[in-house]
């Protein structure tokens, strides 16, 4: 990495004067996101725990999306992927993302199948 940094986050909405300032800005952002997560985890609003999207609670969707947002800013600004060359960034990010999505897909489907075997089979598992 050269010594120049890209200093804007939120697609240029927020531009910092120096790299140090950007680091503190990202920290504030990450802290806000974590606070929202913890607050939601404690309050658990009813409409979020009873609303479903694609078989998962809305609250869990929010948690997962906020986690990915945090992961993005840690990788882009703390691990300075933002300043790396585009091909390097793509190799680092898309290879694991593809493999992990595949892994999640097969394992969770399989687990759901086993759950159905347990509940619909003619054997009791609680005795």
């Amino acid at each position: 990495m050269a010594h120049e940094h890209k200093l804007e986050i939120f697609r240029g909405l927020l531009k910092f004067k120096s790299n140090t300032q950007k680091i503190w800005g990202v920290l504030i952002f990450l802290t806000i996101v974590t606070t929202i997560e913890v607050a939601l985890g404690i309050v658990k609003p009813r409409f979020l725990t009873h609303g479903y999207f694609l078989g998962m609670k809305l609250l869990n969707w929010i948690f997962i999306i906020l986690t990915l947002v945090k992961a993005y800013y840690i990788a882009w600004d703390f691990m300075h992927l933002r300043d790396e060359k585009t091909p390097l960034r793509r190799v680092i990010v898309w290879t694991p993302v593809f493999l992990i999505c595949y892994l999640i897909f097969i394992l969770l489907f399989e687990a759901d199948y086993i759950y159905n075997v347990y509940t619909e089979g003619f054997i009791t598992w609680d005795f």
């Binding site: 694991p96 493999l99 992990i100 892994l103 999640i104 394992l107 969770l108 399989e110 687990a111 759901d112 086993i114 759950y115 347990y118």
Partner: peptide, 15 residues
């Protein structure tokens, strides 16, 4: 991710 997905696997199994 292997570990965390394995956690998800067991959790979905005993959801």
């Amino acid at each position: 991710s292997g570990f965390l997905v394995a956690y998800g696997f067991s959790r979905f199994k005993f959801i």
